[in-house]
Design a protein around this nucleic acid. Structure first.
Length: 479
RNA sequence: GGCGGCGUACCCAAGUGGCUAAGGGAGCAGUCUGCAAAACUGUCAUUCAGCGGUUCAAAUCCGCUCGCCGCCUCCA
């Protein structure tokens, strides 16, 4: 039984769904005004993992993740850079897609843009006005929070408490300080659409309601996002959607915690963030799929509802942890060639444990622990000469790892670069010199001229090339 | 002020009432090796921030104290 923590009930519940074998999943995507950082990566990786696991469990997942491409920040940036808001949005949608691809995130079933759903939003707002759930002030339309009794049910807040702590300047035209804009009158130069209330643009929360209901229906099985979205964004989505439809907007609300740096939330305002691109650049000595996997392994090694502190140390620990899997794969492949392994029934408990961990609110930390145990088992088998079992274990590791988006790289590509023409020169030594140095060292070793052999090894090390002599007599080159 | 979370070994991290407190990284020892490196194997918390309570039994439940963090404003 798959269990998920539901923010709405604050309980771990058995997954519920409307249609047998189908799950509708909506995730609030990015507001495209800047590059995404590790925090966005965590979010994307978590929901990608959830999607993969639901599919493994036999569900057809209809996954919608939107782009919010009309927003104050996009407008502000465009203004600052003297270009159109459209240009800004387009640029960062492209950047977002590129980053997600590099991270190995599967594309959503539908990736709608807010600006392509203005008609739906206007219709929704019109209906809310007609139902007296929203009111018009000088071309702006506000949702009347007081008209929606369950307001606060997701964030478990009481209206009175919220008002006490309100730190924002309250617009005196609002009936209630918590009322939020559904539609805003636009200023000159801003994105503008026609509406029954004059020229304007949508407020922040309405686009998600419009897109979610359009693509997934009035009730969604799972709605997710970062925990900072619980209030007010998701609370407001519930209010406007349920006031409109009269039905439950989402059955299960899934929220994940943040990436922190030195214990503090990674955020734009604190400036303590690393963009995805920076991460890739920083580790450019490795192929991109390797970096992506290291980051994913790292971010999934903590449960999604706990904060994770991001550090270089953590990143390299993740790399070391993954290296052990790939060394195993490589050893097995070298011995076994191309034949297909027999499935070893004695390994079944590992799969069961893995599934039990994932069924328990997607406990990826525990699931990774199971993979590590399976790896140790495979090594034992290898040592005992039970190649068939070791191989079968490796196959299982690949299969289960894929559900988390790890162990997907070929073992050749993982760490050792092939000695080919494409091998780039490094630190002043050209390829030819490197090759001849290695050849020289080989003959020195044959002649047991250890002094010379070591001298060449040091020379190469200074050029950033690491030599490993393997037990079978071959030499590996690493950079 | 309101709401919520966290504190487990040198580091990361699972476990939330009951076999010996998962797993990883680092360290250490052994195997292998001309030596290295890598890898593998083994080892590494009588104890879960502190104090008190409930219970036959608690890291896990309750209370208090200390420390840290998040949301209440745009934020994944």
């Amino acid at each position: 039984m798959l269990k998920i923590s539901n923010t709405l009930t604050r309980k771990k519940e058995t997954l519920s769904f409307q249609k047998q074998g189908e799950i509708s999943l909506y995730v609030c995507g990015a507001t495209v005004y800047d590059h995404c950082h590790v925090g966005h990566a965590r979010s994307a990786i978590i929901f990608d993992m959830i999607r993969r696991y639901l599919e493994y469990r036999g569900f057809t997942v209809r996954f919608v993740k939107n782009y919010t491409d009309v927003d104050d920040k996009i407008i502000a940036r465009a203004e600052k850079e003297g270009r159109s808001w459209h240009e800004v949005a387009d640029e960062f949608i492209l950047a977002y897609d590129r980053d997600m691809d590099r991270l190995g995130i599967s594309r959503p079933t539908v990736a709608p843009k807010a600006t392509e759903h203005i008609v739906e939003m206007v219709r929704l707002i019109e209906d809310l006005v007609a139902k007296n759930r929203a009111y018009i002030v000088d071309g702006d339309v506000y949702f009347d929070v007081a008209s929606f009794k369950p307001y606060g049910k997701l964030s478990h807040r009481h209206l009175e408490d919220l008002m006490v702590g309100a730190r924002v300047e309250v617009d005196p035209r609002k009936k209630n300080p918590l009322d939020f804009a559904l539609w805003k009158q636009s200023k000159p130069g801003e994105p503008t659409w026609e509406s029954p209330w004059g020229l304007g643009r949508p407020g922040w929360h309405i686009e998600c309601s419009a897109m979610a209901m359009k693509h997934l229906g009035k009730t969604i099985d799972i709605h997710g996002g970062g925990e900072d979205l619980i209030f007010p964004h998701h609370e407001n989505e519930i209010a406007q959607s349920e006031a409109f439809s009269g039905e439950t907007f989402a059955s299960t609300w899934v929220h994940h915690s943040f990436v922190t740096v030195d214990q503090e939330k990674m955020s734009k305002s604190l400036g303590n963030f690393f963009t995805i691109d920076e991460i890739f650049k920083k580790s450019a000595q490795f192929p991109e799929p390797v970096i992506a996997e290291v980051l994913r392994y790292y971010l999934l090694s903590t449960h999604y509802r706990s904060p994770i502190d991001f550090s270089d140390q953590g990143l390299s620990a993740a790399k070391n942890g993954l290296d052990n899997f790939y060394t195993l794969f490589q050893k097995i492949e070298e011995i076994s060639g191309d034949a297909k392994p027999q499935q070893d029934e004695t390994l079944k408990p590992f799969q069961k444990n893995f599934e039990a961990a994932m069924d328990d609110d997607f406990n990826t930390a525990r699931a990774i622990g199971v993979l590590q145990e399976l790896r140790a088992t495979a090594n034992h088998s290898l040592k005992k000469g039970d190649l068939s079992k070791a191989w079968s274990a490796a196959e299982m590791l690949r299969t289960l790892g894929r559900l988390l988006g790890v162990l997907c790289v070929s073992s050749q590509d993982w760490r050792y670069q092939a000695w080919t023409a494409s091998f780039q020169t490094s630190n002043g030594l050209d390829e030819k010199t490197i090759q001849s140095l290695i050849t020289d060292r080989e003959s020195a070793r044959q002649n047991k001229d250890w002094a010379k052999s070591d001298q060449i090894r040091n020379q190469l090390a200074e050029a950033g090339i690491i030599i490993e002599d393997r037990p079978d007599g071959t030499t590996r080159v690493k950079r």
